[in-house]
């Protein structure tokens, strides 16, 4: 653990610097190799534990109904039922549902990108009366159980004639999600103020500083925001359930629920559909990572 933590703070360039300051080059190489391998062993062990559920879901998705709970349980069904995947996709328009979810993700992401940096910058950098109270007020909106707001909000959207549209499902994002605002505030507060001051001396206004100086440095936080927005919108079941009527407009979260009947769940099909449905979330995350790693620490290296 200790070795790997050490490695956590070493990047290629740092390593270079260290090379010059120390004499025992070979010793470093040995240590590096040891660090590498211990880190890999540790991570592989944890990864295996984290993968068990996924493997189990996968094996369930390939079984017949009678095999799922057979004794003794088997990890690999004798005859893998790949047709479960076909059946899952033909029984409901899952591709359509996933497309709908994607549309919702895009709309929400746009909303968050428009609102969150602006609001967070205000809280993090600008000085004005009652800031602390307003900030606490903002945090407090996360503390009330969401279910209590369902009926009043439904009533409001219904009066506005917005039931069976996507509006209730993305409009709030344009007014900032407290979680992301808070995240962004904390992030901006760790960015040195010298950068702002330097730009101000050069004649940049508040908004220029926000969008030209601060925001580009917030890439990791913005990436977290996009990854989480994707995840939450993808998994949100209650909101679309409450606001949508048209079967063809349902997102994947609601679509998956159709595999649960009143009396039983078709576990094999359900697992097949669930597995396929989480793929986009994982793929997005896989590619988003390169924006997650970087930011100030990289900037510091050049300077």
């Amino acid at each position: 653990m200790r070795l790997s933590k050490d490695l956590g703070e070493i990047s290629a360039a740092q390593y270079e610097a260290r090379r010059k300051s120390q004499r025992a080059n070979t010793w470093i190489t040995v240590r590096r190799l040891m660090g590498y391998s211990s880190a890999y062993i540790l991570m592989t062990a944890i990864a295996l534990v984290f993968m068990i559920p996924l493997l189990w879901m996968f094996s369930t998705s390939l079984k017949t109904r009678a095999d799922i709970f057979a004794w003794p349980p088997s990890w690999l069904p004798d005859v893998p039922m790949w047709e479960n995947y076909v059946a899952a996709f033909t029984s409901y328009p899952l591709a359509r549902f996933m497309l709908n979810s994607t549309i919702l993700v895009v709309l929400n992401t746009i909303g968050e990108l428009v609102s969150v940096p602006l609001i967070a910058y205000g809280f993090a950098r600008l000085r004005f009366p009652f800031k602390k109270v307003l900030f606490l007020l903002m945090l407090s909106t996360m503390m009330i159980p969401g279910q209590i707001k369902l009926i009043p909000l439904y009533s409001m959207y219904s009066r506005l004639g917005l039931i069976d549209t996507y509006v209730p499902l993305f409009l709030p994002s344009f007014f900032g999600n407290p979680f992301f605002i808070f995240l962004m505030v904390q992030y901006i507060r760790t960015i040195p103020r010298d950068l702002d001051e330097a730009a101000r001396i050069d004649g940049a206004g508040t908004w220029t500083i926000l969008y030209r100086i601060i925001l580009p440095l917030c890439k990791p936080a913005l990436t977290v925001m996009i990854v989480f927005t994707f995840l939450w919108v993808w998994n949100d079941f209650l909101q679309p359930l409450i606001y949508l009527n048209d079967f063809n407009s349902y997102p994947i979260s609601v679509g998956l629920a159709f595999f649960q009947g009143r009396y039983s769940v078709e576990w094999n099909m359900f697992m097949a559909a669930t597995l396929v449905s989480i793929l986009p979330v994982l793929v997005l995350y896989f590619f988003a990572q390169k924006h997650l790693i970087g930011g100030i620490s990289a900037l510091g290296l050049k300077g």
Binding site: P152, Y154, S155, L238, L241, N245, D246, A257, Q260, R262
Partner: peptide
């Protein structure tokens, strides 16, 4: 016809009946 998943029908009905509309 509006088709709802069996597992979410109750929440939806309770919400709309509570809102008194829709």
């Amino acid at each position: 016809m509006t088709l709802l998943p069996a597992s979410g029908f109750d929440e939806r009905m309770t919400t709309t009946l509570g809102a008194g509309q829709g």
